[in-house]
Design a protein around this nucleic acid. Structure first.
Lengths: 214, 214
DNA sequence: ACCTGAACACCGTTCAAGT
DNA sequence: ACCTGAACACCGTTCAAGT
């Protein structure tokens, strides 16, 4: 066929197909050849649009990060605990929709524009709320720890549903653990919400101490 | 050579070499062929000791989890916040020593004995401290979220040291972000400690409310 | 500019053959 | 039981060739 008059591929189409493949079959299922087949082209065609597979993955990651809502940081006057809460929920929702790519994305913003915009918005809002810069950095980091950790893998689904696994002699307290996977959504959501509120309460304590000193 | 009189390999030797390779060059560098070369045997030899590469990875993961200190949960009478704090630090230290394998390990305990022992110890101690079982499950989950998230990747190192990345027009608050990577250890440690104490404070608030009701 | 097939140096895994 | 080489169906990436 050689060069068609209208291109068969675009970066957008490739990224969308790659994300679908990763969501459906995992990160390991994403091979350049498999992806090309999915797009009805030959393997090397992709290299007209991305320099390497890693470059392609970077674009996929940034498209996911682009789904995170940052509007609460721009609305002036939103108290920081409220902004942080809303943002953390949106952040988690965006990642949890694509858990298989979280390990890649958790490596940090790198040079990805959406990831840098996110870091900028969080840090800026905290500083403008009165947090010292060093503390604001730490809060940005610990929130990312918690959100990426919670989106990386289901806690509940990590426990096999097979009751035979939990030998009472070895694991005296795990007698009910085989039920966890069945309540996967509720367990993970409950743990995330509990952790988020605990974190915000703990941070509010520190914020109050900050005010006392000044 | 065929079968030697004393085996060239053992599961322990294979696991140790695999972990070294993962630590030094990343998860992608672990191929069965490369690992075999490292051990001075041919590729297929490994299949006498592990059914698949995934089985081998499972053993590597459990060896890392085995390094986590659980003694604080056995020492009767340790208040739960103190036990949780000490355990979280040991947990993070064990994972942070091998960040490249954290994505695999964060999938949950599966059938790995050390991971199940860890879950059993945490849950058991919380329940015996008076936490309702549902809450104890959530706390085990949220602590894993936070610890795996913090060990998965350095927050500081995720920001390129190249100042050119942080165009003031696009990212008005990231003017100093290029310095983060240089303070990597301090930033990540500070964020972990701040988050850990905030979480424990927030949980203590909930524990107090629990006591009021009974 | 954007696609193709052929080619190179890799993979994980199976299997028959050796001791 | 535990190792080997050969083989199969895959990889990511390069490159010359086509329009």
């Amino acid at each position: 066929m050689a060069r068609p008059r209208t291109p068969l591929l675009s970066r957008e189409r490739i990224v969308a197909a790659a994300l679908r493949l990763i969501d459906d079959e995992g990160l390991d299922a994403l091979s350049t050849r498999r992806l090309a087949t999915e797009l009805s082209v030959s393997g090397p065609s992709l290299y007209n649009h991305f320099a390497t597979k890693d470059d392609l993955l970077d674009a996929v990651v940034d498209s996911v990060i682009g789904e995170v809502d940052l509007s609460m940081f721009k609305a002036a006057g939103t108290p920081w605990p409220e902004a942080l809460r809303d943002w953390a929920r949106s952040y988690r929702a965006a990642l949890a929709a694509h858990p298989n790519i979280v390990p890649v994305l958790a490596q940090g913003p790198g040079r990805r524009p959406n990831a840098l915009r996110l870091a900028d918005a969080v840090f800026g809002h905290l500083v403008e709320s009165g947090w010292p810069r060093g503390q604001a950095t730490r809060i940005g980091a610990l929130m990312r720890y918690f959100v990426t950790g919670s989106a990386l893998a289901s806690f509940a689904a990590g426990f096999p549903a097979d009751a035979e696994v939990y030998d009472a002699a070895d694991y005296p307290h795990l007698g009910e653990a085989h039920r966890l996977a069945g309540h996967r959504g509720a367990v993970d959501e409950g743990a995330f919400e509990t952790g988020l509120e605990a974190l915000l309460d703990g941070l509010a304590l520190r914020y109050a101490r900050l005010a006392e000193r000044s």
